[in-house]
Write a protein that binds this DNA or RNA. Structure first.
Lengths: 181, 181
DNA sequence: GTCTATATACAGATAGAC
DNA sequence: GTCTATCTGTATATAGAC
């Protein structure tokens, strides 16, 4: 557990990448095996079933999310601004795990939906004492959800371009002006 | 076109219902035929392929969305409040079409994603002249996105309970206080 | 128009050789 | 450990009877 075999991790990386680029439907066992450079039999040696692969991905996602919440508390702009900024994904390990987990949830995987809900609750608890009241907390969470989902479904999927640069800074200032205690 | 055959419409209803309840994966041709009370051969007489069924659903969704935007302009609370309220779905024909279209987009259907993006642009254009500036417009859109996606992926899927009743009214007042010109 | 029967393709998983 | 070969289930779509 403390030092997972390298081959196992690279198979999981391949699965994550395929979920992100092709969605749950494209992330077949055949495709994962090919992307990881092993045969289907070899893949099934490391992960005995598709479900085992999914479970491993969600565990990775939760672990990275816990580390992220701890980091946000140290952000110089404050935890609310940090939350909004991390809702716009870049390409961190957590971003990729969340994207892959979202793709799984989108395909109707209940455990993936539950894991994403747990991540959101983690954020909600961390933000509560840094917002004016429950209404302000919900506003912050919903703006974060909007940013997050537009990214998660994204790659030109659902929406047009999100605010960037100075526009995004202005948005954060506007949210902070009504949400901060 | 102006008076589509009743059987065709009820097949489309069955497809929409299956997308909502079981997702794109569960909405197989077999399942749609059974739900509509026809055989697979009968279904394929009305819609020659799965793609034809998808196209018809997206056309229905766009048509209902255009009607909705026209209605919003007449809402007594104002168009911004109307937009936020309709982002929390109830069970209108548009809500059901949007949910079904979302399920399709979630499964990786590019045309569904494009259609949903067009719907969002429709709302954006309608809201622009009723918000203070571009930053306020983006805030309103993102809160609506947060509400919408939580519903679309919802049914206990991604998040906990959204604000309701008085809590939701308070949220609308908060958004209006910063967004209205 | 609507049906049954079937063709074709591809998914996840197993068995057993190396 | 990793491979090839194969089983089984299920999806879309076609052919042709009624």
């Amino acid at each position: 557990m403390s030092r997972p075999p390298r081959a196992r991790e690279s198979v999981l990386d391949a699965y994550e990448n395929l979920l992100i680029s092709d969605g749950a439907r494209g992330a077949t066992m055949d495709a994962v095996a090919a992307a990881a450079g092993v045969s289907k039999g070899g893949l099934l040696y490391h992960y005995a079933s598709k479900e085992a692969l999914e479970t491993a991905l969600l565990e990775r996602m939760m672990e990275l999310a816990r580390l992220d919440v701890d980091d946000m508390a140290q952000h110089p702009e404050g935890i609310v601004a940090a939350y909004l900024r991390t809702s716009v994904m870049e390409d961190s390990a957590l971003d990729r795990a969340l994207l892959a987990g979202s793709r799984l949830a989108q395909s109707g995987h209940p455990a993936a939906s539950a894991a994403l809900r747990d991540v959101r609750t983690l954020w909600e608890e961390a933000l509560r004492e840094h917002t004016r009241d429950e209404t302000a907390l919900q506003l912050v969470l919903l703006v974060g959800d909007g940013l997050y989902f537009n990214n998660a479904l994204g790659a030109g999927a659902v929406v047009g371009p999100l605010p960037q640069g100075e526009d995004f800074d202005a948005l954060i200032r506007l949210v902070l002006s009504v949400a901060r205690p």
